[in-house]
Design a protein around this nucleic acid. Structure first.
Lengths: 329, 329
DNA sequence: TTGTACGCGTTATCAC
DNA sequence: GTGATAACGCGTACAA
């Protein structure tokens, strides 16, 4: 830092208290001294130390975000939305990656507490909830993002994955598909569970038999998409695939091509997290648009309300998605 | 925070100094008291305040990163690489977005200084360099990422855009292309200037005339890609397009399709920043693989060396890219 | 080996 | 309207 309030005070011939008053205009200071102090501050290029202030006021105007990985565009888009809201409100953002590892998650939450963040936005990883239970007991406000912890009183902003999956599967069935494979994330994610509920519900409504072997779990990555869709197509003989991430969808698409399955005649494909390139494949991919940026914004807004001592009861916000039916279904 | 060193000290019947010794094992403490203190710390779930420590030692073990936007996968992949190196070395990362705005850039740099980050990794936005000159005069180590400030003594880790563009254009010419349009970022980015040099050099070597109207500048976005490529195809009649981002490339591809130009017969397309979906278009897109994660890692490593008082002279690291020639060229 | 006491930069309380 | 001064939580020189 170098230049501190004391330096400014000395140069301006006033006390540090007065400088502080000017910086925060927290008290009436005479026009004259105010001008003088401001001039000295500008001349010395002084700006107050956030660290010193934080220690004193016990707030940092910083919030912590934990996402699984920064290489997943869905989460970085959410981070972008969060950053926008925070910036508008004079808050900084610390972004961390858990890599879906519970031990890392625990360390990260501790580190963020130690940095005295004013609030947390977490994408929890699981499978167990120990870390979450503890964080909810602390006095630090928390909002969960994308995945909602079940059976825990907590604020969450998530997508309505039950509805989106239910609708997508229903549409596939209406188009005559009878054996629909589904590529998901880890079994313990609320997103995964919600999607399975939507899937089963749609099957049930259509009087189709539920076959658990058509449900496959993954890390959302491209490799998983390539391998698991091969299994679905070759071993299970599915006539449609629902994929829970854009990379899984891409994997299914590339594998169908490689196996000379024509889309959508032999196999229909629909995926989550619509991205612009879905319009560039042949045939164009049907995908579900997920409002990641909006989700981030809402989480940030809710968190700021909580930091501002908003006392309403815990809420789980479900954001609607939008299905883009293109040529692959 | 709540529970502090004083609380632990009281409970364990020792002084705060002793607790501090145990926490940092900075001094010999008897086996016995060490055990006792550790037990109390665990029981009370104590961890030290990073704020208090930072104020005391004048270091935060935190570094600040400024990228243009978090919605650009290229930069978030770089951030991922940075995060990995930092985590390995016990550092935290604060990520901020400039939105390519110089005023925001200035504020961000101040805010990061005020947070007393131990180092900065910046993707500067320009067009002017005032902010950069000032940050270089501060005592805080800085490494520039992706874009190198010209005529300034500074550490930078960037891609070899001259070489990659030169090679790509040369290959297009060898395949018979004579009128090559090129879609770039802002005129003042070093990346843009390097690419133009590579372009002109390749043209010159082949004895082709340079036409500045074939060079178009943009914000790297999809919309720009759609519009500018239409201009190149309809107004300028190019037979090849080089695009400096994946979104620009996608825009060129979609526009060529819309205008019923066949790829690569009517127009060849090659773009920067290879992503998996380049294999899913028809024809598959030729793209230049850019080691964003690697770039981030190297920047983080260099920065940590500087923080560790490494005194070597300033260096500009140029990372090689790799051209994937698929079907669009 | 352990404890005392000061200071990092700031703000808030209380005098003046 | 302004100035001393005591915290905030920690690390460390120095004393014991």
């Amino acid at each position: 830092m170098g230049i501190t309030m004391k330096d400014v005070a000395k140069k301006a011939g006033v006390s540090t208290a007065t400088v502080s008053y000017v910086v925060n205009n927290s008290k009436r200071v005479s026009e004259q001294t105010c001008k003088k102090v401001k001039k000295v501050m500008a001349a010395m290029d002084y700006y107050p130390s956030a660290i010193g202030r934080s220690l004193r006021v016990q707030r940092t105007r910083t919030i912590g975000l934990m996402v699984p990985v920064l290489s997943n565009q869905y989460f970085t888009t959410a981070a972008h939305g969060i950053g926008e809201i925070l910036q508008q409100n004079g808050y900084s953002l610390i972004i961390t990656e858990s890599n879906e590892d519970m031990a890392a998650e625990k360390k990260i939450i501790q580190a963020l507490h130690s940095l005295m963040v004013d609030g947390l936005i977490l994408v929890p990883c699981g499978p167990r909830q120990d870390n979450l239970q503890r964080v909810l007991q602390s006095s630090c406000p928390v909002v969960f993002l994308d995945r909602r912890p079940e059976r825990l009183k907590a604020d969450s902003v998530v997508l309505d994955n039950f509805l989106s999956t239910h609708t997508a599967i229903k549409q596939l069935i209406e188009k005559g598909r009878k054996k629909i494979g589904i590529l998901l994330g880890a079994t313990w994610f609320s997103t995964t569970k919600d999607r399975i509920r939507g899937y089963r519900q749609a099957l049930k409504e259509a009087g189709l038999k539920f076959n658990p072997r058509l449900i496959l779990h993954s890390d959302y990555g491209l490799d998983a998409g390539l391998n698991l869709s091969q299994h679905l197509l070759e071993k299970m003989g599915v006539d449609a695939i629902f994929a829970a991430s854009s990379n899984l969808t891409l994997g299914a698409f590339l594998t169908a091509n490689r196996l000379k399955k024509s889309i959508p005649q032999d196999v229909a494909i629909i995926g989550c997290d619509d991205l612009p390139w879905a319009n560039a494949t042949h045939p164009r991919l049907s995908m579900i648009e997920q409002p990641a940026c909006e989700m981030g914004k809402m989480a940030a807004e809710l968190l700021l309300k909580r930091i501002g001592k908003y006392q309403g009861s815990n809420q789980v916000v479900f954001l609607p998605t939008r299905i883009h039916n293109r040529q692959s279904t």
